[in-house]
């Protein structure tokens, strides 16, 4: 397995579930086919992809009329069940965060869970700690 660069990773993690009425092969393919990704992910911006472990991708996500560079390398490519890549953007301050997408088949469709972890804080030297996400979630609820 391709190693993550744990030292450059921040302490934050988010997880987003989504359900689709399409087979895992099609949902997975929409992530790894450049023409498809150009349509829904990059919103018409430039897409370069080499979906194999350590292959690179570049997305010029169009946002507010100008391309925002996002790039990374694939860590795990296991069609049609698992896709994992690093994610670098101006928001990650040039550091690698990691996006993991799990595709679980169900009757007539696919359940997807996208997890984005290693989101950087403003001080990358900080050690990330177990339980931090739980802490933040609990706190967000309590202070809401």
């Amino acid at each position: 397995m391709i190693a993550r660069n744990e030292h450059s990773m921040g302490p934050f993690r988010i997880s987003v579930p989504k359900s689709y009425d399409a087979a895992p092969e099609r949902v997975f393919g929409a992530w790894t086919d450049p023409a498809s990704a150009r349509d829904w992910l990059a919103e018409g911006g430039d897409v370069v992809m080499d979906p194999r472990p350590d292959g690179l991708f570049y997305l010029g996500l169009l946002h507010g009329g100008r391309p925002r560079p996002h790039y990374g390398r694939y860590l795990r490519v296991q069609p049609p069940r698992l896709l994992e890549f690093t994610w670098v953007s101006e928001n990650t301050h040039g550091k690698e965060s990691v996006v993991t997408i799990e595709f679980t088949p169900r009757a007539g469709g696919t359940d997807v869970r996208l997890t984005h972890e290693g989101l950087p804080d403003e001080k990358m030297a900080m050690a990330h700690t177990q339980g931090w996400t739980y802490f933040l979630d609990t706190l967000a609820v309590r202070v809401a």
Partner: peptide
């Protein structure tokens, strides 16, 4: 701050739904 990322991916995953349809 962390919710920004959640919104970003939620929008993108919704867009994927539209694309598949």
């Amino acid at each position: 701050w962390t919710a920004q990322y959640e919104r970003f991916w939620t929008r993108r995953l919704d867009a994927l739904g539209g694309f598949l349809a």
